[in-house]
Measured scan of single mutants.
Amino acid sequence: MAAAAAAGAGPEMVRGQVFDVGPRYTNLSYIGEGAYGMVCSAYDNVNKVRVAIKKISPFEHQTYCQRTLREIKILLRFRHENIIGINDIIRAPTIEQMKDVYIVQDLMETDLYKLLKTQHLSNDHICYFLYQILRGLKYIHSANVLHRDLKPSNLLLNTTCDLKICDFGLARVADPDHDHTGFLTEYVATRWYRAPEIMLNSKGYTKSIDIWSVGCILAEMLSNRPIFPGKHYLDQLNHILGILGSPSQEDLNCIINLKARNYLLSLPHKNKVPWNRLFPNADSKALDLLDKMLTFNPHKRIEVEQALAHPYLEQYYDPSDEPIAEAPFKFDMELDDLPKEKLKELIFEETARFQPGYRS
């Protein structure tokens, strides 16, 4: 834990890192770190609560700039109880001085990944967590956004079992017609939660990839272990087919990539493993919904509104309290091709509203 900075004593240090967030945020305490930044909790002297502050230093890398800009653009436009918001952003007053960006968010005690390492969940908890994931996802999908990296560590939890989806750095506007060349190379989302079509096709992607990830998360809540822990690309596919069985001819016809289709045709026939054999203690309604989410063919996979209306979630289902976005989200430009200098300018502009004396 960093010592509390005395008023006016300059930035606090946390594990050798400068955290320049005073005077409003003090009493910093280390939480963890990701690929390009550290997260601390801090005391907000204005709202009198502890908050989470993520320090991001992305400006050396085009990919990190892209992810940072995506996350900020999306989260500043989203407003939903099951999606983490941005409360404040701290950065230098000029673009030349801006080396880091500090993002202030609600402090959540833990995440689903940490929880599943230590606790076996009751059916009631599984049901409530799944409902909140789908409630947040309904809003995301209504904005025409794909999260693309749903996994237990991106689901934040607090002691009252509130759940918030975080990390929109890989999110995209849904565009089933656009052929994202190089899709697989830039697709760094965790393999275990990846839909089979991501490994088999490169053309376009749809909201059904997020539903697949939610199915993987439900299976993990039922058993405290990942359902498809593939060691590499082909191993991942083999794990999936080992449980779902061989795809039907109709399902194979959806695979545009001939090499991928021929690979699947070359494999020995596998039978589907019954879900109640894998999860003998699970609620039968939970397994019915799991089956509809972990469907090989993305066109037959359940959609988020149908999933919310499934009998497993009937005690929570309330369409009048499951809000959607006001308007579909649009990125003005494809960020993939922009140089990091341009992305830095866009991050600077996007964060201006939090600067003292800002006038829109």
Rank of each mutant, 00 (worst) to 15 (best):
V188D: 14
D20I: 10
L222T: 03
P176Q: 14
P280W: 11
Y131N: 15
D235E: 14
G8I: 07
I89L: 05
N281Q: 10
I324A: 03
I302H: 05
K292F: 07
R172N: 02
R24Y: 01
Y43A: 10
C65P: 12
M38L: 15
D44I: 09
E33Q: 10
I83L: 06
C166Q: 09
L28Q: 14
E314T: 06
I90D: 00
G242I: 08
R191D: 07
K292S: 08
Y102F: 14
S142A: 01
D167V: 15
H310S: 06
E334K: 14
E334R: 00
L222Y: 12
R353W: 08
Q249H: 14
F168E: 10
P319G: 14
L107C: 03
I256K: 07
N271Q: 02
G8N: 02
C161N: 01
Y358S: 11
M221V: 00
S202A: 10
G10Y: 13
K151G: 02
R191E: 10
L241Q: 00
G37I: 07
K342S: 01
A3T: 12
C40G: 08
P298S: 13
L237A: 06
K231Y: 10
D288E: 15
T68A: 15
P93M: 03
P196W: 03
H239A: 06
E186S: 04
P176M: 05
S122G: 00
I243C: 09
N158Q: 08
V21H: 01
P226G: 06
D288H: 02
K270P: 09
R79Y: 04
C40T: 07
E341H: 11
E314A: 08
A92M: 03
N201F: 04
R67H: 09
L287I: 11
N238P: 09
S320P: 03
N87W: 02
P196H: 13
L134H: 01
A189R: 10
Q97D: 13
K330L: 08
Y36G: 15
L170T: 04
A219Q: 08
I140L: 11
A143K: 05
K138R: 11
P152A: 06
K138N: 15
D162H: 06
L264W: 00
R135G: 02
N224P: 02
L346E: 13
I217V: 00
T26Y: 13
F129S: 06
Q132A: 08
L134T: 05
K344W: 02
N271F: 08
I324W: 12
N87E: 06
A309T: 15
A4E: 01
L264N: 02
S213V: 07
I240L: 13
Y36W: 07
G22L: 06
E81P: 07
M13Y: 04
L121I: 11
V49K: 14
L170M: 13
L157K: 04
P339W: 02
N238V: 12
P247Y: 08
K55V: 11
I243H: 05
Q236P: 01
D20K: 03
N297K: 11
F348Y: 13
K259F: 11
N271T: 10
D167E: 11
E71C: 14
T63Q: 11
L75M: 15
K99C: 04
G34W: 13
P23L: 07
S153N: 11
V14K: 10
V104N: 04
R15S: 15
R50S: 14
K48L: 14
I165W: 06
A4K: 02
V51K: 12
I243K: 05
A219S: 14
N45A: 12
P356L: 12
R24C: 10
A286H: 03
F354G: 11
E322G: 00
S266C: 15
R15W: 14
T190N: 10
I89G: 02
S142G: 02
R50N: 12
S320H: 06
L290W: 05
Y43Q: 13
I95T: 01
M199C: 04
Y25G: 00
K203R: 12
R135C: 13
D235K: 04
L241I: 10
A171Q: 00
Y43D: 13
N224R: 08
A42Y: 03
A327T: 08
H125Q: 14
M199R: 02
V21L: 12
R172W: 03
L218P: 01
T190F: 04
L137M: 10
Y187F: 14
G169A: 09
T159D: 02
A189L: 12
K55M: 08
A3W: 07
F59R: 15
A6Q: 09
L112R: 00
I240N: 13
T118F: 12
S57N: 10
T63G: 12
S284G: 07
